[in-house]
């Protein structure tokens, strides 16, 4: 377990006056990031609100590796200051996530990484990133057979042979 550290309440010169956050990944890497980069994350925002209420700022421990965390920070840095409808807690969620070209390239990673990113994005409550990952995963299994889908998604066939051939497990619409 990482030690709880106090974060110096300093500001970054030049880059506006955003405060710093200390994020600690599951592999115990300490990552310092500007607060407004991470404000897209509802989870982080709530933590920050908590700091303000208690006037105590401390490190935020996250249950995923620095590899995944850095990827998420890259995403948040890219969209720093951008308004994305899905991340607006007051806006009605769009029916389907919009396709953003940058996201497609950003998420051109293997499926393990993709599943890790979506899990982290869900934990951090970054809806736009969850939506983009969901789309990317869906793209991988589109038009595939059941067997191929199992392989891509890493799921085991746990039906009994009887169930597999019974009409109730088949599509009934």
């Amino acid at each position: 377990m990482p030690t709880i550290v106090s974060v110096d309440d300093s500001t970054v010169p030049g880059e506006g006056s955003s405060r710093l956050l200390l994020l600690v990944s599951s592999d115990n890497k300490h990552i310092v990031v500007e607060e407004d980069i991470m404000s897209r994350s509802r989870f982080i925002s709530k933590q920050v609100e908590g700091f303000e209420a208690t006037s105590q700022r401390h490190a935020i421990l996250l249950p995923f590796s620095s590899f995944v965390l850095n990827k998420v920070i890259e995403y948040c840095s890219h969209y720093r200051g951008y308004y994305l409808l899905e991340d607006d807690p007051d806006a009605a969620p769009p029916g389907r996530s919009p396709v953003r070209e940058w996201d497609q390239e950003f998420l051109d990673v293997d499926r393990n990484m993709l599943l890790r990113i979506i899990k982290a994005a869900h934990y951090l409550e970054i809806k736009s990133l969850v939506g983009s990952c969901a789309r990317a995963i869906a793209d991988m299994i589109r038009g595939k057979t059941t067997e191929e889908m199992r392989e891509i998604l890493g799921v085991e066939n746990d039906f009994t042979p009887e169930e597999e051939h019974s009409p109730s497990s088949k599509c009934t619409g």
Partner: peptide, 19 residues
């Protein structure tokens, strides 16, 4: 959310992957 991003005609195959 992932399943919602699929085309509906992929769902029947997906239903058969696991319980």
């Amino acid at each position: 959310m992932v399943l919602g991003s699929l085309n509906w005609d992929d769902l029947p195959n997906l239903k058969l992957t696991c319980r």
